[in-house]
Design a protein around this nucleic acid. Structure first.
Lengths: 120, 120
DNA sequence: CGCCTAGGTTGACACTTATCTAAACCGCGT
DNA sequence: ACGCGGTTTAGATAAGTGTCAACCTAGGCG
């Protein structure tokens, strides 16, 4: 499956991977590794992986913190810290609307990561 | 730990693999997150990400530690430790042939991870 | 307006785990 | 036995994970 020709302008800012020839195709430059490793690191925790999934698979593409928190046996601040980690890794965006904060996945970086791991 | 003492069954790695409905398609079960998060965590370090790339993109699909180590400004034991992390995460296999140890990527889990991050 | 409450984030702290090195060790070939 | 290639152990320092308490914002009510 060649990703190169796939993404047209389905959504406005979904520019297809300015980077990321697959990991197994050519050796990753140190800079690229330094830039992308934090994203993998952010996904390297079961709670954050589930949070990421809940956000990305949520109806309307966004999830309220008020829906995320009760799904775990963890305190509010702890979930908030994990969400901050995902935010700082560039995996999600947060937006406040009224009293509630909504999180949304950033498809570009996710495609980058998926592309990196792609194997022929 | 005699996990990689000898290379017995070459492909016994079909494992539990509740593999790969994309993260953004349906919410990941806690068990799946617990199983796969360590793999992402292992990739969450610039050195290991580069190691992974060097191994996966190596000629013949395998790389000798003697070729990996000098590519970094780190001591031998440190590289060995990172390789052990990749091994324990199930991302690579090690095999000793004579004096040298060769590492090889495990495509199944890589496809699982890539599939997880896939977005329509 | 002032006061209260609910939703989230931030800060400070304890505890656990990761990263790195030097030194000791193991396996293999000469 | 010796040397070389890698791994393991032990130990110091840095970073991650969790909680409670304090704080900030938005909205409801007298």
């Amino acid at each position: 499956m060649s990703k190169s020709a796939v993404s047209l302008a389905l959504t406005d800012l979904t520019v297809d991977a300015p980077c990321c020839p697959p990991l197994a195709q050519s050796r990753i430059p140190a800079e690229t590794a330094t830039v992308l490793a934090p994203a993998f690191k952010a996904l390297g925790d079961p709670v954050r992986l589930q949070l990421m999934s809940m956000i990305a698979s949520a109806d309307g593409g966004e999830a309220c913190v008020c829906d995320l928190t009760p799904a775990f046996d963890l305190s509010g601040p702890t979930i908030s810290h994990h969400l901050k980690t995902l935010r700082e890794a560039g995996l999600v965006d947060a937006e406040r609307r009224g009293s509630w904060v909504y999180y949304r996945a950033r498809p570009v970086i996710m495609r980058q990561l998926a592309g990196l791991l792609t194997i022929d």
